[in-house]
Amino acid sequence: MGVSILRDKSYSFALLVIQRYKSIVNEKKEFVLSKQVLRSGTAIGALIREAEFAESKKDFIHKMSIALKEANETIYWLDLLKDSEFIEHTVYAGLHSNCKELVAMLVSTIKTAKSKI
């Protein structure tokens, strides 16, 4: 799997997270949980970008592993936002699905990279 596909999907996801963050802050006046999902949701793509210029295969795996942790954390914050009724189930479902896809792609990328060292 190419890093560019992962890069593009993570960037699109970050844009969705930013849009949702603005909506939650403006409409619901919720600032704590939404800020957390903004941070972790945008960090995924930033870490993938960092990994593109990793110094070594181990550095690449390390950065991708941190991106995976951020994706998992993002799911946690999305769950909290849904269960505390700050986002609607349909909004949650779309974001959750996109994030789970990123998790699967990251797991696959990390496994492939590990098999080549």
Score class of each variant (00 low, 15 high):
V103S: 05
E70N: 06
A14K: 02
E70A: 14
C99Q: 04
E55Y: 14
K28G: 04
T74A: 15
K69M: 07
H89W: 03
H62T: 08
S23K: 09
G2K: 04
M105K: 04
G2M: 05
K82E: 13
S23N: 08
I18G: 09
D83Y: 12
E85K: 05
L81H: 02
L95E: 10
I66K: 03
S12I: 02
A46Y: 01
Y11F: 15
S34V: 10
S34A: 14
T90Q: 12
K82T: 03
E52F: 00
F60C: 06
K9G: 01
W77R: 09
R39L: 14
I117C: 09
V25D: 05
K28I: 12
E50H: 05
S23A: 10
K114S: 12
S84R: 07
D79V: 11
I110M: 12
E88S: 10
E73Q: 08
S97H: 13
I66E: 08
A71D: 11
L102A: 05
V107M: 07
A93I: 06
F53V: 04
K116Q: 14
I75F: 04
A67S: 13
V103W: 04
A43E: 12
E55Q: 15
K29V: 08
Q19G: 08
K58N: 14
V103M: 03
S56V: 10
E50D: 14
N26S: 15
V25H: 00
S23T: 14
K29L: 08
R49W: 08
I44H: 00
I24F: 00
L80C: 05
I66S: 05
K29D: 07
L106G: 09
K69D: 13
C99G: 06
F86M: 05
I5Q: 02
V25E: 11
L106W: 06
I110D: 04
A71V: 09
A54L: 04
S10T: 13
K63G: 11
E52T: 06
L78N: 09
S4A: 10
S65F: 06
K69N: 14
L95M: 06
M64N: 15
F31V: 08
D8S: 08
L106R: 01
T112S: 11
S108W: 03
L6N: 11
K57D: 13
E88P: 04
V25P: 10
E55V: 14
L68N: 11
F13Y: 09
E73H: 00
V25T: 12
K100P: 05
D59H: 11
A14H: 01
T42D: 03
A113P: 10
V107A: 07
K28P: 09
Q36D: 12
K22C: 05
E70T: 06
I66A: 04
V3F: 12
H89L: 12
S10G: 05
V37D: 04
K58S: 13
S108R: 11
H96C: 15
F60Q: 06
F13A: 05
A113R: 03
V32G: 06
L16Y: 13
K82G: 04
F86I: 02
D8A: 08
K69V: 10
K63H: 13
A51C: 06
M105E: 10
F31A: 07
A14G: 10
V37Q: 07
V3C: 05
V3P: 00
I18W: 00
F60S: 02
L15K: 15
H89C: 03
L95F: 04
F60G: 01
